[in-house]
Nucleic acid binder design. Sequence first.
DNA 1: GTCTATAGCCTGATAGAC
DNA 2: GTCTATCAGGCTATAGAC
Lengths: 199, 199
Amino acid sequence: MQTKKTSSARTAILEQATPLFATKGYSGVSMRDISKKVGTSAAALYHHFPDKQSLYMAVMEFVFADKVKNIAPPPEDNSPASRQLEHFVGNFVNLLASDPCLRALLQRELLDGDEARLKLLAKRLFIGPFEAIATFAKSLSSNSDPHMLAVSMIGLLLFHFETIPIREFLPSGEDKHNNTEVITSHVTQLLTTALGVSE
Amino acid sequence: MQTKKTSSARTAILEQATPLFATKGYSGVSMRDISKKVGTSAAALYHHFPDKQSLYMAVMEFVFADKVKNIAPPPEDNSPASRQLEHFVGNFVNLLASDPCLRALLQRELLDGDEARLKLLAKRLFIGPFEAIATFAKSLSSNSDPHMLAVSMIGLLLFHFETIPIREFLPSGEDKHNNTEVITSHVTQLLTTALGVSE
DNA sequence: GTCTATAGCCTGATAGAC
DNA sequence: GTCTATCAGGCTATAGAC
């Protein structure tokens, strides 16, 4: 019973490639770009990954694996609904704030991914957490469609981060709107009211 | 007082380039790709646009100009707030559903755009409509931050469209969740409750 | 206004030495 | 496991004929 030994070269490649793909997208990054950032040659990358697509998919798994697993409170959580909601929003906001690449890669995939890749990513990474959020949503508001409510909750959160780069050019856009506590409390308050969760 | 004569070749290029940039992104589309779809040569494109960047920016103006101008109800609208909200959501959903390129290009720009380009796009295209939405949001809920509320409302709507390609692979994802009326009524109901807008 | 041809560079990927 | 060298082709953009 032995876990795979961590190949540090491989991990270093994934770590360096992640922010490149997140900021420039799949077709905006070349194998040479990655190799330069790692401090090696392009040919060396092909020793660790068979091709660019495989490297990219490995980056996706590297970024998402485990990070989004426990995003929703477990069904057996007995704390008050208002507290659960507050924690859920807070945890989600902290995750998005602490790892900007995660959000960018998710949104790029929704724009770029073909059917096969989205199916694979959904199956391996997103189905579990999404199901948990939908179940949590259902426990908060039993007469709404849990699928739609989960989508609404996630979208509500994401867009505050998605708009960070343009906010300073929009009316009343201030630094405080990028602050995690401000986003958390705004979204929590909105959802608490929307779902009729008693305080 | 004469408006610029419509150059039909130029317009044809913009029309063909729009879905390409929307689906594959700036660096995923070559001038040859565009020229093939238009049915001309790559060199011909350079007669109408000085370079690829200029063509892309022209596409952005072509897609956004006027379309998002009247997205929010005017301040002098005297219909009940619940009706205004319903119309706003309905109009926004219809816009996003009728023109998938508009949403994709907006989200790509938020991911790809450098500071200068985002500033330019904000100034020329987004400030007006965003301001109108924020003002509308303030009229609905005077004690919330209008900027954050506007961001929340837009994000709530967008994500239902952003997730269309992956929804079929997520739990309980059904075709009905892609239906404009279903999205409109879900979001309207959510916002009506969240903002305490009386029916 | 559109064409063909091409310059000059970048691309993913491979071969073979070490 | 990493290197240099290289292939075959794609890229933006331009030159110059028509």
